[in-house]
Design a protein around this nucleic acid. Structure first.
Lengths: 171, 171
DNA sequence: CCACATTGTTATCGTCAATAACTGATATCG
DNA sequence: CGATATCAGTTATTGACGATAACAATGTGG
C-alpha cells in the first residue's frame, strides 16, 4: 500500500507522486498556472482523464501487478477462448514479445492455459483455467466499479454520449 | 535455421518485420475478436483514442524526441514565464526529478532559460529563449493540426461536447 | 546558532517494451 | 520429394523512463 510500484506504459505519467504528497503546506498566493493552448485542445484533457481512470482501476484492483493492459488481455482471452497469441496481441496493439510476456503473467498465476492445437502446431489456443474464470469474474466487477467511479460526475445519457463520441473518433 | 538475412540490403523492404506491420492500427473494431466487457466501459476506448492522439502528435511533430509531455511543458513555460520548476512539475503531475529532466531537455535545445531570482535563490524562474518562442510557435501549429486530425470525424458541436464531458470528469 | 523544510540535482534501481535473432512448424513451388 | 520462405512464439539484449533516496544549497523559525 505504501509504495506505488512501476507498471506504466511509455506514455504514462502518474498524477500522484511522492513529491506531490511531500508538499504539505498549500501555497499562500501561487494560484494554478495557465494551461495556455492545452485548454483548447482535446488531447490534453483526454490524457488527464485517462490517467484518472488508470489510477482508479489500479486502486480498485488493489494489486499493483495487475495493470489495465493485463486486465484487457484476460478479458479478451475470456471472451475469445482458443484465440492465438497473435490474434490477442494484435487486438491490443502489442508486439509479439509483449504478448508473450503478458500471457506469461497470467499463466504464472494459473489463470491461463496454452493448448497446442493439432491443426497448426505452431500456435497455441489460449484458454482460461477455472482459476482464470474466477479471477476474470472478480476483475470484471472491479473494472465496472472503477469505471463507474470514473464517470461518477456524468449522467447515464452523458456517459452514452461520451462513448459515442469516442467511438466516432476511432470509427 | 532461422531467417538470417545475410548480405542484407539496407533499404530492403523484406527487412520490415511482421511485428512492425502487425502493430499498426490498434483499431478497436478491426479485429475479428470479441472485446467483451471492454466494449461496455469508458476507460478502454479512452485509452485507444488517447493512443491515436499520441501517435498523431508524434507524426505531426516529426521528431521522436518531442513527446506530448515535453510539448506540454514547453507550452506551460511559455504561458507562465518565470514559474518555478516545482510549479511546472506540479501542474503536469511530474515528480521533481522528472521535472528537472524535462526542463533539461528544452534547455539543451536552447529553448529555455533558468534564471536565478534574487528573492529565493533555491529556485529558478523558467523562461523561454527566443529560440524557445520560435519552437513553441511552431509546435502550437503542429499541435493544433494534430488535434484537428484527431477529431476529424467530429463536428464542431461534437468536439465542444466531448471537451465539456471530459472537463466534467476531472473537475 | 541550530534544527528543519524547501528547491533542485544526481545516483541507483526496477520495470517495461522494442528490436533482433533464434527454434520449431507449416506452406509453397520447382 | 526437397529447398526455401514464411509464420508463431520465445529469448537476449538494449534503451527509455519513472521512482525513490540521498545530496547540496538555500530559506525559515525557534
Amino acid at each position: 500500500m505504501g509504495k506505488v510500484k512501476n507498471h506504466a506504459n511509455k506514455g504514462d505519467a502518474t498524477l500522484i507522486t511522492a513529491d506531490a504528497v511531500r508538499r504539505r503546506a498549500p501555497k499562500l498566493q501561487s494560484g494554478p498556472l495557465d494551461y495556455g493552448q492545452l485548454k483548447d485542445i482535446t488531447g490534453f484533457p483526454l490524457k488527464v482523464v485517462w490517467i484518472i481512470g488508470y489510477t482508479l482501476l489500479v486502486k480498485h484492483v488493489d494489486d499493483p501487478a495487475i495493470t489495465p493492459q493485463r486486465v484487457s488481455m484476460l478479458e479478451l482471452i475470456g471472451s475469445n477462448p482458443g484465440a492465438t497469441q497473435s490474434q490477442l496481441g494484435a487486438a491490443l496493439g502489442l508486439s509479439r514479445p509483449a504478448t508473450t510476456l503478458t500471457i506469461d503473467f497470467w499463466q504464472d498465476r494459473g489463470c491461463v492455459d496454452r493448448r497446442t492445437e493439432p491443426k497448426d502446431r505452431r500456435s497455441f489456443g489460449i484458454h482460461l483455467t477455472e482459476e482464470g474464470e474466477r479471477q476474470l469474474a472478480d476483475l470484471r466487477q472491479k473494472v465496472q466499479m472503477s469505471d463507474k467511479a470514473l464517470t461518477a460526475n456524468l449522467s447515464e445519457d452523458e456517459i452514452a454520449q461520451l462513448r459515442a463520441l469516442l467511438a466516432k473518433i476511432h470509427q
